[in-house]
Amino acid sequence: MSTLAARDVTKAFGGLTALAEVSLEVAPSEIHGLIGPNGSGKTTLLNALSGYYLADAGRVTLGEADLTRVSVQRRAFAGVARTFQKPRLLPTLTVVDNVMLGGWPAVRSSFFGTALSWLRARREEKVLRERAEELLHGVGLAPVMTRRASLLEHAEQRFAEIARGLMAGPRFLLLDEPAGGLTPHEIEQLGVVIRTVRDAGIGVLLVEHHTDFVFRLSDRVTALDLGRVIRQGTPAEVRHDAEVIRVYLGA
């Protein structure tokens, strides 16, 4: 069973150690929650897994493959998709176009090939559009499919980003605070989507501040503080860990 794993990853910015020998493993069909106070290294770890930061020491692996020095793009091709804390859609494109962009790893037409053999590009386009529309129906954004992304509400942007991440059929989906700015009702809907993604065999890393949400949804949870793992285990274990309560959850 191939997992997405960080093994003893260390990352420093100047004198500040953001991650100190952090290990974490996301398995297929698993929701792995990642919690911790601000500045504990959650997003840094997500960036190290998706390739935006290269680890100073330690390794990042996907199954047998060593991704430690591999670019963001090659990791996307390997099946690692992600969303951002602040949604990053292309404002001038429609929602469905934005989601289609996520299908880039499935594109076979070369640049000059597209210019010349448009029939093949058009066939690819049709397949991609159908899948994007299905995904948008699935995450519940069908009514805004043809709207420009710049006109979307915050929650809609979050769901659209998830759809974009799912477009290429990833093996792992890394979510950076997906519940941020959502209403309680929307968070419930988000939970439905994330569970469905997990049940389809995709490993989910859930970086989140809404701890109730994380504990409710996750199969395993990792708690970080000051760039170190302070506890890893089932939601119940982590929730009742004295150290986790002291530094993060409070009494």
């Binding site: 499935a106 129906h137 699935g138 995450v139 477009m167 469905t196 065999g201």
Partner: peptide
């Protein structure tokens, strides 16, 4: 936003 879990699952099972 009202996700359709069944439709999403069907879509995710069909690999691109």
């Amino acid at each position: 936003v009202a996700p359709d879990a069944e439709r999403l699952a069907r879509c995710l099972r069909s690999e691109p």
